[in-house]
Simulated assay, not measured.
Amino acid sequence: MNQISSCVLAYVSGEKAGLILEKPFNMGETLNGIMRLDIEAEMKLANERLRELRDNGASRKAETIAMKELGIQRARFFGWPNTYAFTKAMGEMLLGQLRENVPLVIMRPTIISTTYREPFPGWIEGTRTLDVFIVNYGKGKLRCVPIDRRMILDVIPGDMVVNAMMVSMVAHSNQPSLFIYQIGSSVRNPFCISMLIDSAYHYFSKNPCITDDGKPIRVSTLTIFNTMASFRRYMTLRYKIPLKGLGLANVVFFQHFNRLYRDSSRKYNFIMRLMGLYECFFFFKGRFDDFNSEKFRAVMKDDGMVDGMFCFDPKCIDWEEYLMKIHIPGVVKYLLESKLVK
């Protein structure tokens, strides 16, 4: 029998608080319930907007920006925080509707981090959610962040997600039903965001990144803002207003400060864009229930399938040791040193 196995995102649930259950999306369901979601209508709207931009001769950059803005607008209209989660939710709906008697396994991993064991500890390819902050903090570019230090961060190593997918495909290959598993750690083995902040400081204090001219980059403790509003006020007073003054001086003195103004603007816009993109994660108060996953683990453990290389139990992780000895060194080795992140 054919089988569909889909890996989506636990954050398709949006910004809900409390315990978030492993339950499917019904076709047309929205997070805010204000109206039914018509996927075909959304696709038509996107295609019409793209055609309009091209008919008007928009540049590729302008086209990309406009389509991103449309995606965010439509996502938030229905209650999702961003386009990524919105489209993942629509994907779940379509799979559920079209599968007929085909077994369907939907995996919802939380924040995926470096591998725990396989193919070796600390491996990663491409910058993930956590690592944007780790990389920019280690390079001295991130000095403040809006976040609740008490927030539970739901992280799962990438190899555990792969192991769960492989075992589930074998286990459910002849079961014509829908199975949903949230693969995360916030219920079984939670850790607080403050542990990541402290670990990053201790690691980079002992193992500083090096500039192009061979000098160590000294990190300081992050300045923490308890709300996005207080963070935006700080950024306005500390950077935005002086930046406007620099821009005016640059005009008055015939572009004398052009390079400084351009570099400062780029850094400011990068930080504000980064914080805006991840705002929905900074004060997230949900916990991802993994009752189905835990029950599945127990059954597979009795069958001898989840020991050794097929482990996907977050309870085996010592988070402090993982951060200091596996995750942060892995990020440095495979992202910073390979220059995948500029």
Rank of each mutant, 00 (worst) to 15 (best):
L335P: 05
V170P: 00
S220D: 14
N82C: 13
N101V: 00
I197V: 15
R266Y: 15
I152Q: 08
E294P: 00
Q255R: 14
K88Y: 05
P81Q: 10
R108L: 01
L37P: 09
E92T: 05
S186R: 04
K61A: 15
R54G: 01
G330R: 02
F78R: 02
G138K: 03
F283S: 02
M166N: 11
V219Q: 05
P146S: 01
T30R: 07
D154E: 05
I197K: 00
D290P: 04
K141I: 07
F281M: 03
S186Y: 06
D318M: 00
L237S: 13
I39N: 05
P121V: 05
N174K: 14
F257H: 12
T211Y: 02
R143A: 10
L98D: 08
F25V: 06
T110S: 15
I328K: 07
V252F: 15
R238N: 13
P81L: 08
M90H: 04
P103R: 00
I241E: 00
M165S: 09
F291W: 07
F270R: 14
D303N: 12
V341G: 01
K23S: 15
L70K: 01
E52L: 10
H256W: 13
K342N: 14
M1T: 09
R297S: 00
D302Q: 14
G57H: 08
L130A: 15
D213G: 04
M43I: 11
L222V: 04
G122W: 05
P242E: 07
G158Q: 14
M324I: 08
N32M: 04
F282R: 03
G276E: 11
V102T: 15
A89S: 10
L19E: 06
Y261F: 14
K206S: 13
F257T: 14
I34C: 06
S168P: 07
F86L: 09
E100L: 09
F191R: 01
S5T: 14
T114R: 09
A200F: 01
V332H: 10
L335W: 05
